[in-house]
Design a protein around this nucleic acid. Structure first.
Length: 455
RNA sequence: UCCUCUGUAGCUCAGCGGUAGAGCGGGUGGCUGUUAACCACUAGGUCGUUGGUUCGAUCCCAACCGGAGGAGCCA
């Protein structure tokens, strides 16, 4: 008899009769003459209540020892539950203890702290919260592909090992071989020159946009920054669309559309898991997500934002000043207090942004944008790219970068240059926003942060 | 990297200059169509590490290591 997943079983409208299920015991309650087994197989948040009668021949060998954490398989008949709290329950006819869980099984029926669960990251997906978070993560990855594929974007796999050593996005990890012989003979560089783990697929993505028009990347990214915050990881996933024949306006529109679409998808397809997050993580989560889905985002230029902050009368730890980067507290004020919804800030001062962003006609600002969301801050950063060869070369020189290393990148402007734009969306930051989880370490299966690469 | 807080039983925490306690979890027994069930009993700890102060330190001090929050950087 084929196994049926709990997600499908518990959705049954009418009684499916005899079924076969497999999963892990979440808790067991022994009564006189029978036991209640709550089993979960990760296909959904809900557990299945199994009634195992003491007259079963394997009752003492398989049912009584099936403690929290044990894996079991149960054959039986699904019947309407006599008790409250569940619609269906499984009346066991045969129970097999696939794998027992000794008494030192670390997960209790009680709630655990997120810090403790991080120390057992290999077992934490067995908890309600992490099951929910990682089902949502999977769904969001799918929704991202769907969003771009439906709009005709081509998925491009940019390299993870890169030779561009100065993409301007942060400290990089070096890639070296472990072969001692090569180190001794001075041929330690496998690729003949220093290589690094990518900090962004943007520059490579631009090359494909300047050929296939609309592309996106979705893959791992690495930053060797010594950042110790709840919003940074050394390894994270990023989505980077890049569009030819597109300006900043189109870029901002796509970014807002994407965030809205993903929030709507989560509300539609992860309802049960979001209800759980709403109950145990953030009581205002669903309300906020619905608000984001329905309301239009705000847009404000950097100059307007500065004026607004100066006029706010708020005393900030860092003073607001034109030409200086907005601090986290400033961004937070805009999105959490003033607008109380996602805000796109655009046209930043040229001096605080990287070389590839397109210089505006005022000569002082660049066509850059950041999308800020309440609770997280910056979730998307993007720009229209500088498509004019002479301006781009001047920018590189101004920032002291080696033009030769960017030869291939400059070629895009030398041969059939086009206006183009794109942005980067931090996947984990999106997940924090969608789940309400406050620490990036709890939305990625095995987090890598300074000093920590467990598992 | 900087600032602040923190490190006591498997987990969550209380405590105190005279070498430790609760709840939950575990074990045993009981009870019950139960819902993080309930009741009783019971077993668990060189109080993060290393130094120092002291007659005496889990408690005070210092350094180090781990964890958390905030900042910077960014996604």
């Amino acid at each position: 008899m084929p196994r049926i997943r709990l997600v499908d079983l518990l959705r049954s409208e009418s009684c499916p009769g005899k079924v076969f299920v497999q999963g892990w015991v979440r808790t067991k309650r022994d009564a006189k003459g029978f036991s209640f087994l709550e089993i979960n197989d990760g296909s959904c948040l809900a557990n299945l209540q199994v009634i195992a009668d003491a007259i079963l021949p394997e009752y003492s060998s398989a049912v009584l020892p099936a403690r929290t954490g044990a894996s079991v398989e149960v054959m039986g008949e699904l019947v309407a539950s006599q008790g409250k709290g569940q619609r269906w329950e499984l009346r066991a006819e045969k129970v097999v203890l696939t794998g027992s869980a000794p008494e030192d099984y670390p997960l209790q029926k009680k709630g655990h702290s997120l810090e403790f669960l991080r120390s057992i990251a290999h077992l934490r997906p067995r908890t309600n919260l992490f099951g929910a978070v990682f089902r949502i993560r999977s769904r969001m990855a799918y929704a991202i592909h769907r969003f771009f594929q439906e709009r005709g974007f081509v998925y491009v796999h940019t390299p993870i090992i890169t030779a561009s050593d100065c993409e301007g996005a942060g400290e990089m990890f070096r890639v070296v071989t472990m072969e001692r012989e090569k180190v001794r003979t001075g041929k330690e560089e496998f690729f003949g020159k220093p290589t690094y783990l990518t900090v962004s697929g943007q520059l490579e993505g631009e090359t494909f946009a300047c050929a296939l028009s609309d592309i996106y990347t979705f893959g791992p990214t690495f930053r060797a920054e010594n950042s110790n915050t709840s919003r940074h990881a050394a390894e994270f996933w990023m989505i980077e669309p890049e569009m030819a024949f597109c300006d900043l306006e189109g870029d901002m529109a796509l970014a807002e559309e994407l965030v809205k679409a993903l929030v709507a998808d989560a509300l539609d397809f992860c309802a049960a898991d979001l209800v759980f997050c709403n109950q145990f993580v953030d009581k205002e989560l669903i309300q906020r997500l619905k608000f984001v889905r329905e309301r239009s985002f705000q847009r404000i230029s950097y100059t307007e934002a500065v004026a607004l902050l100066l006029a706010s009368g708020k005393s900030f730890e860092y003073p607001v000043e034109n030409g200086v980067a907005l601090q986290a507290e400033h961004e937070r004020y805009l999105t959490e207090e003033h607008f109380q919804c996602p805000v796109t800030v655009y046209n930043y001062p040229k001096g605080i942004k990287p070389f590839y962003m397109r210089r505006n006609d005022d000569g002082a600002t660049v066509a850059a944008m950041d999308l800020l969301v309440p609770g997280i801050g910056e979730i998307i950063g993007g720009s229209q790219r500088e498509e004019r060869l002479d301006v781009l070369e001047a920018n590189l020189r101004e920032q002291g970068l080696d033009l030769d290393a960017y030869r291939w990148y400059l070629d895009l402007r030398r041969y059939g240059t086009v206006p183009h734009a794109g942005f980067g969306l931090g996947f984990e930051r999106l997940l924090m926003f969608v789940t309400g989880v406050g620490n990036i370490r709890d939305v990625i299966p095995f987090p890598r942060t300074p000093g920590v690469a467990a598992f």
